[in-house]
Amino acid sequence: MARTDLAPQRRRPARAFGGPGWGQAAGALSLSLSPVFIELSGADAGTASAYRCLLALPVLAPLALPEFRREGRPPRRQLLYGVAGGALFAVDALLWARSITEVGAGLSTVLVNVQVVLVPLLAWAVDREHIPRRFLLWLPAMIAGVVLTGGLLEHGASGSDPVAGTVHAVLAALSYSGFLFLLRRGGFHGHVRTTYTVVILSATVVSALGGAAWGALDLTPPWHTLGWLALVALSSQIVGWLLVALNSPRLPSHTGAVLLLLTPVGAVLLGAWILGERPTLAQWAGCGLILVSAYVTVGGRRTNPRDDGSAESP
């Protein structure tokens, strides 16, 4: 029996920087605003994670309503993808924020961005999606760029509890990769906005429960905190992740994962511009290496018809 409800349909090979590629890149750059706004809000992990999702729901629900009326209720499997993906997003947000204080921002950022490896591996293992040689050849350069951009070579692993922080960062990386995989897979057969709204609803509930359990949830944050978190909801949940949800199902998994590396690059640039941070020469070099690797990997001209990374239905 054909698994037409489980696997992605065959996609026509396309250049990554046309259509969905630009949408994915715009989403990744929108996400880079979130760390800046969260820093300005002064909110702890549980509060930031719960409210950035909660404040997005009044906008996402009306956006999903026309799709729901047109296409009806999503299949149960897609709803399960949404619930599980939202839970993984919340776990990632909580663990990553905690790991920053325990092991330092550099190592936690590097570990979380191993999604560039894990997401294509998941797509290969579950959907039998082809991974092109060009991506594999440039993968070490991309990882080196992430290491440099995270400032790990200058600061190393620092914090209150490096062992616990490393464990939390690794678990955050696994959760983040699982979230990206389910977010992409949930959009293979339509109902994207409806499923994404389920993702954010699930993330709101799990973030609130997890934040309360960790003692990191403020139910009555001050108004200035809510204002900054509303900007996080706009830039991340309403614009950034919705663009990723809409465009990543139309891209090979490795392409979507590479384009998401624009998020730490954007965060470095915005941190320097808005927060007055001073990136080191190594961090600027890491940003450049990520940009070059991304362009060469997903934007260059392809000569091998099997090198487009398109998935095939089993």
Rank of each mutant, 00 (worst) to 15 (best):
T4L: 14
P8D: 06
Q9V: 15
R11G: 07
A16F: 02
A16D: 05
G18D: 14
P20S: 14
G21Q: 00
A25F: 11
A26M: 08
L31W: 12
S34V: 09
P35N: 14
F37G: 00
E39V: 02
L40H: 08
G42V: 06
A43E: 03
T47K: 12
R52P: 00
L60V: 10
E67D: 08
E71H: 14
Q78V: 04
V83C: 05
G85W: 02
L88Y: 01
F89L: 15
F89G: 01
A90N: 03
L94W: 07
A97F: 12
R98K: 12
R98V: 12
V103G: 14
G104V: 05
G106C: 06
T109N: 09
L111Y: 04
V119Y: 10
P120D: 00
P120R: 00
L121R: 02
W124N: 11
W124C: 08
A125P: 08
I131T: 10
I131Q: 05
M142N: 08
V147D: 01
L153Y: 03
S160R: 11
V163H: 13
A164H: 13
L171T: 06
A172C: 06
S175F: 07
Y176T: 01
Y176D: 02
S177C: 05
G178W: 13
L180G: 06
L180R: 04
F181I: 04
R184G: 01
H189A: 13
G190T: 12
H191A: 09
H191T: 13
T197D: 10
V198T: 15
A203D: 03
S207F: 10
G211V: 06
G215K: 12
A216L: 11
L217Y: 14
L219N: 00
T225H: 00
L226R: 11
L226A: 14
G227S: 02
W228H: 14
L231Q: 02
A233R: 03
L234Y: 11
V239D: 06
V244K: 02
V244H: 08
A245E: 09
S248C: 10
L251F: 13
A257N: 09
V258T: 15
L261M: 14
L262F: 06
L262W: 09
T263E: 15
A267Q: 13
A272G: 05
L275M: 11
E277L: 11
E277A: 15
P279Y: 01
P279G: 01
L281K: 01
L281R: 05
A282V: 09
Q283K: 07
C287Q: 10
L289E: 05
I290D: 11
V292A: 15
Y295L: 15
T297S: 07
D308T: 13
D308K: 03
